[in-house]
């Protein structure tokens, strides 16, 4: 591999890693911080992508669709938490698995009824649709760099909010000891309702931003679900930095795995996970 190709592949790895973080960030909140095993995370991603598709047709603008989509998904998250998830915090993880698995099936069927099973595309904004030439044959789509930028901003803000603000302190307090935090006068129910809603909105945002490059199709949620869990587990449950680092590691492993060991490309990410968990059973930044 010559140096130029190596650099471009590194860029690919970095960009893919950041995209993975974007999709997994919501799961870091819901599974990592709130401790709810949410298998429906992929469905929220899918819902986001379909929102981008239908809302951009409706509003005529991609960013209009994203803004409206975020509002809708927060509201959707609040409703879902109020109606279903709020009943599960004290239950066994298996109950959470059952509920969220059921939700996957329901959302997928509703999608099929509402939008059909065809593959759709979402137009990207004109000013982002250009490509920057890197070599004489290869160019890099501006939109991908734009996505990477959003992911970095998002990672930073999540870290600041959770680790450096009073709100984040309360969330962390609620996670480590719900009763005690409540006893100190924090309205944990309301707080968690919003944390959950933002988790849903983040997943949906991931879907919305990915829609122009990945197109919109049935079953797209299940493709990202497993990887999201891998990201959260490798990073250490509940750690934003861990998730970011894990996503980047996976991005690089996947990219170079595909190029260097094509026959085992499907395995590389899981080998990485196994190796990291053997070395640090609680993940990179997890506390055992």
């Amino acid at each position: 591999m010559d140096p130029v190709t190596f650099l471009i592949q590194s860029l690919n790895g970095l960009q893919y890693g950041l995209l993975l973080f974007l999709v997994a960030s919501g799961l870091t909140l819901v599974f990592g911080i709130m401790g709810v095993v949410n298998l429906a995370h992929g469905s929220f991603y899918m819902i986001g992508a379909y929102l981008a598709f239908s809302l951009s047709a409706l509003t005529g603008s991609f960013f209009g669709a994203v803004a409206l989509g975020i509002v809708l998904s927060v509201v959707f998250g609040l409703l879902l938490e109020w109606a279903l998830f709020s009943r599960l915090y004290h239950r066994d993880h298996l109950d959470q698995v059952l509920l969220t698995y059921g939700l996957i099936l329901i959302f997928e069927e509703l999608r099929s009824l509402a939008v059909g099973d065809d593959v759709h595309s979402v137009a990207m904004p004109d000013f982002l649709s250009a490509s920057i030439p890197l070599t004489d044959t290869l160019s890099y789509p501006v939109y991908r760099l734009f996505m990477s930028g959003i992911c970095i901003v998002l990672a930073m803000s999540m870290y600041v909010v959770i680790q450096r603000t009073r709100l984040g302190m309360r969330i962390r307090a609620g996670t480590s000891n719900r009763e005690m935090a409540q006893g100190l006068g924090i309205d944990i129910r309301l707080l968690f309702r919003f944390v959950f809603a933002f988790g849903v909105a983040l997943a949906a945002l991931g879907g919305m931003l990915a829609a122009p490059v990945s197109s919109v199709f049935p079953g797209m949620g299940s493709q990202v679900l497993i990887l999201c869990f891998v990201v959260v587990v490798i990073g250490g449950i509940g750690s934003v930095w861990g998730a970011l680092l894990a996503a980047l590691l996976i991005g690089f492993t996947d990219t170079f795995g595909k190029v260097l060991f094509p026959d085992y490309a499907g395995l590389s990410v899981y080998v990485l996970m196994a190796a990291i968990l053997l070395w640090r059973p609680a993940g990179l930044f997890g506390r055992a």
Partner: peptide
């Protein structure tokens, strides 16, 4: 059904 094609496009260009 992996759809992360970017590494392969780089490879093809090379």
């Amino acid at each position: 059904p992996n759809v992360e094609f970017q590494p392969f496009l780089t490879e093809i260009a090379a």
